[in-house]
Design a protein around this nucleic acid. Structure first.
Length: 806
RNA sequence: GGGCAAUUAGCUCAGGGGUAGAGCGUUUCGUUCACAUCGAAAAGGUCGCAGGUUCAAAUCCUGCAUUGCCCACCA
């Protein structure tokens, strides 16, 4: 081993693992299957620190299961269809999707992905992830298209997928329907305008609104049924300013009498409540907004203006007419499209939906069969399911996605679904295999594509589809683990459970493990706009992947962590310490091999450390089985630093340096050192795969049979090696050493300063006397004497007193 | 407004009825013999507040406060 630890060794082992296919899924092995539904990252340029963080957690778990002998199925995938890719491609090539032909844009997407994907995946290899990269999927590949279309058709035949003209959330910037989950909140400055409406008969009412541009869409006015102020208005008609239509005043409990004037206008559609009123009160439909975010002919003289322009113009006109009596600047929270920040509109459109609102209770019930780590995260899922108000709109008016395998008959408009044998199919480029039941052979293709989540909700099926053997496929599903971060519980996790319920009436995985986020040192989210983004590749080139991984493993499951470069130093120290400790051990194991391991002549310190090692192994397994990698890391760190390095190595040194040590004692020390170091390496291997591999290869490989430490088995807890009595007795020796160290430290002496005489008073004289030579050499003491002490004593513990003569 | 979580040392966080813990930071001391990218040691806390249960509460229960997240509200 080299004297200096170097992070260059990481690249070497990454190549080795790839070349030797160390992480290859080997279903022939007779063992329990452990299948991971790896999150496919969106190809969006670079990996961010949150990725490095949560994928480390996943990898630790996968490596752990591999090292307890399980058959680990750990595929990799990239999510590269849909809007994010389109945005990336537009940016990367400096083009605008609306100025391009559909086919040209799609091929540009394919070309760009082909260029960026390998570089993107390399980031994952750089953190040492142990996926089987022979099992890699892309959500836009032909195979996945076939599979996604097949499952769409399944839903269609189950009467779960339907086409309808319904109010949908709409992004006027991206010009596509979006789902509830695509929304995020944004604080937006706006005006709350009080508008005067004349009543048909006599009098007037004041309505407060932030959306005066929707006056032309006003179809009713609502007051609260218990609002005494307005009781007399109910069922009367009011005249909408500027546009002059007469609308009924109705009552509804959803009105908040405290808000504005307590009178609210209902437009089709200003918000979700409007949609509910539209259905509940069977109101007419009046749409004023075009899909591109401009006003349509219904808004008369405002036609062609953008929404915000129209809003301003209408306010001006209302003011001129004296109809706008108060304008108040407010900042309020509105729903915007997560991808582009545009305020979401509600338009009526022909879209494809998955009907699932009737299954809300079932989604909650089936989830109870899944184990959540941490358990409290389950509530977020349940909360989301309970709050669902819309069926899942799965069509998007985009180019780069998986097409619907659907046509419509030109003559009778009937839906024509593709046949399974012709999948994957793009209805724009091909035709149905048979004619319509009405006899017509002419069809109009569906131009929309499937929502990204409609495909990524099938990742268990996509991943398992990479395996061709039927028996093995069955063993892989339901999968063992879905690991992911908490931000997409409402999307990816929920949709996957929903699909699994709809298609198979089964849970998709047995367990869910939720990671947190990496925040900046102030506890704020990292974002490009704030300029506080930390790139993991920069951390890796500075400290190495093992350091980053060791740091990432200190987080509690589900908890966010703050990035603080100071804290990564603790991890760096651990790696260097491991390097140096290994160097010391190996220099004393040169003439040793595993055939010489012999536990017959163990000294008490050997039994003591082996006993603590067993406790460590026990706690390590106990915690990792519960996905508590943080605690397992603590357990092994503690053993390594406190017991192995600080005490055992110091105590054992004389057995290598002193020439008058017996061969048997030296052999015992070497045996223990061999076992200890190998155990420490293995226990650390899931956390720090590179350095542990380097040390393993440089010595242990010769004697152990596995060609990589990552294919070896972790030590199992062996009750026989626990030795509570020796452990307890020897702890007194450690206490004694500590007390002498403390004495020297307080006096300002070097720890190596020679001490003339140590006087010990103890009831257990014999037990201590046995270790006199050890104490003398570790603490550099000339004489040890046992007698009663009358003054100047130091209490070591309740049993032992000492006095020191320099 | 509903839900979830957090509140412990200067900082980041463990612990979960019986003596208050770690790492970082601070201070002091110490290097030929694995490691100064190190070691030894010290200082440092009414465990958010108020009640209750108990022989005993940081820990369990109730309420409150503060912070964060998810959802709802968006007229």
């Amino acid at each position: 081993m080299k004297k200096q630890y170097s992070i260059n060794l990481e690249k070497k082992w990454q190549k080795f693992w790839g070349k030797e296919k160390i992480y290859k899924f080997n279903p022939q092995k007779k063992a329990t299957f452990f299948s991971v539904d790896t999150p496919p990252p969106t190809v969006s340029g670079k990996m961010h620190l949150g990725h490095a963080f949560s994928y480390t957690h996943i990898d630790i778990i996968a490596r752990y299961h591999r090292m307890i002998g399980e058959n680990v199925f750990f595929p990799f995938g990239t999510d590269d269809n849909g809007l994010p890719t389109e945005k990336l491609v537009e940016k990367e090539n400096n083009v605008n999707i609306f100025n391009m032909k559909r086919n040209e844009f799609i091929s540009l997407c394919q070309k760009t992905l082909k260029k960026l994907r390998p570089e993107f995946i390399r980031d994952w290899k750089n953190i040492g992830i142990s996926c089987d990269f022979d099992l890699t999927y892309s959500t836009i590949s032909k195979d996945v298209q076939r599979l996604s279309q097949k499952f769409f058709i399944d839903l269609y035949h189950k009467n779960r997928a339907y086409r309808g003209e319904f109010p949908v959330l709409w992004c006027s910037n991206c010009q596509t329907a979006i789902a509830q989950a695509d929304l995020e909140d944004k604080n937006i400055e706006s005006f709350f305008v009080n508008i005067k409406f004349e009543l048909e008969e006599e009098g007037e009412i004041i309505i407060a609104t932030t959306r005066p541009e929707l006056l032309s869409s006003c179809v009713a006015i609502f007051v609260h049924p218990n609002d005494k102020r307005y009781k007399n208005l109910i069922n009367k008609k009011a005249i909408v300013p500027i546009f002059g239509q007469k609308v009924l005043i109705l009552e509804d409990e959803k009105v908040n009498p405290e808000k504005g004037t307590g009178i609210v206008m209902c437009c089709t559609f200003g918000d979700v409540t409007d949609v509910e009123w539209y259905f509940d009160h069977k109101l007419p439909l009046k749409i004023s907004i075009n899909p591109n975010g401009t006003m349509n002919e219904l808004s008369q003289k405002y036609q062609g203006l953008k929404i915000k322009e129209a809003r301003q113009k209408i306010i001006e006109d209302l003011e001129k007419e004296g109809k706008a009596i108060k304008k108040e600047k407010i900042s309020h929270i509105v729903n915007v499209h997560e991808r582009c920040g545009t305020e979401a509109e509600i338009l009526v459109n022909w879209q494809w939906f998955i009907k699932y609102l009737d299954l809300k209770d079932d989604f909650i019930k089936i989830d109870k069969k899944i184990k959540w780590f941490p358990e409290y995260m389950r509530k977020r899922y349940e909360n989301w399911v309970k709050g669902l108000k819309w069926d899942w709109c799965i069509s998007r008016q985009r180019y780069f996605g998986i097409p619907f395998p659907v046509w419509y008959c030109k003559r009778c408009q009937k839906i024509k679904i593709a046949e399974i044998s012709q999948l994957p199919v793009d209805p724009l480029n091909s035709k149905p295999k048979t004619s319509c039941s009405c006899g017509s052979k002419e069809f109009i293709p569906e131009e929309s594509v499937l929502d990204t989540w409609a495909t990524s909700s099938l990742t268990p099926q996509i991943a398992i589809d990479l395996i061709k053997n039927k028996n093995i496929k069955e063993k892989l599903f339901p999968m063992s683990l879905r690991p992911q971060a908490h931000d997409i519980i409402n999307f990816w996790l929920f949709y996957t459970i929903a699909r699994s319920k709809l298609h198979f009436n089964k849970i998709p995985w047995k367990t869910v493990m939720i990671s947190g986020f990496v925040l900046d040192p102030k506890g704020e989210k990292m974002s490009k706009s704030k300029g506080n983004v930390v790139f993991p590749q920069e951390i890796i080139s500075k400290y190495g992947a093992d350091v980053l991984r060791h740091w990432a493993a200190k987080a509690s499951l589900g908890e966010d962590i703050r990035w603080d470069e100071k804290e990564i130093n603790a991890s760096k120290r651990t790696i260097i310490k491991l390097w140096n400790a290994a160097r010391f051990c190996l220099s004393n194991l040169k003439d040793f091999n595993n055939k010489k391991i012999n536990f017959k002549n163990l000294e008490d310190e050997d039994k003591w450390i082996l006993s603590i090692l067993e406790e460590t192994i026990k706690d390590y397994h106990y915690n990792l089985k519960k996905f508590e990698f943080k605690k397992s890391r603590e357990v092994i760190d503690n053993f390594f630093w406190k017991y192995f390095c600080d005490n055992y190595l110091e105590i054992v040194k004389p057995r290598f340096y002193n020439k008058n040590i017996s061969k048997n004692s030296k052999n015992a020390a070497q045996s223990v050192l061999y076992i200890l170091l190998l155990s420490v390496l293995k226990l650390y291997a899931p956390f720090m795969p590179h350095i542990t591999e380097e040390i393993y290869q440089s010595y242990f490989k010769k004697w152990e049979k596995e060609k990589s430490i990552h294919l070896s088995l972790l030590p199992e807890f062996n009750k026989k090696l626990l030795n509570t009595k020796i452990k307890k007795d020897f702890e007194e020796i450690i206490d004694l050493i500590s007390s002498v160290r403390k004495y020297k430290s307080e006096k300002g002496f070097s720890l190596k300063k020679e001490i003339n005489k140590l006087i010990i008073e103890s009831k257990n004289k014999n037990k201590i006397e046995k270790h006199s030579n050890l104490l003398k050499s570790v603490m550099n003491i000339k004489i040890i004497e046992f007698k009663k002490i009358f003054q100047d004593s130091i209490n070591v513990n309740s049993n032992i007193k000492i006095q020191i003569e320099e």
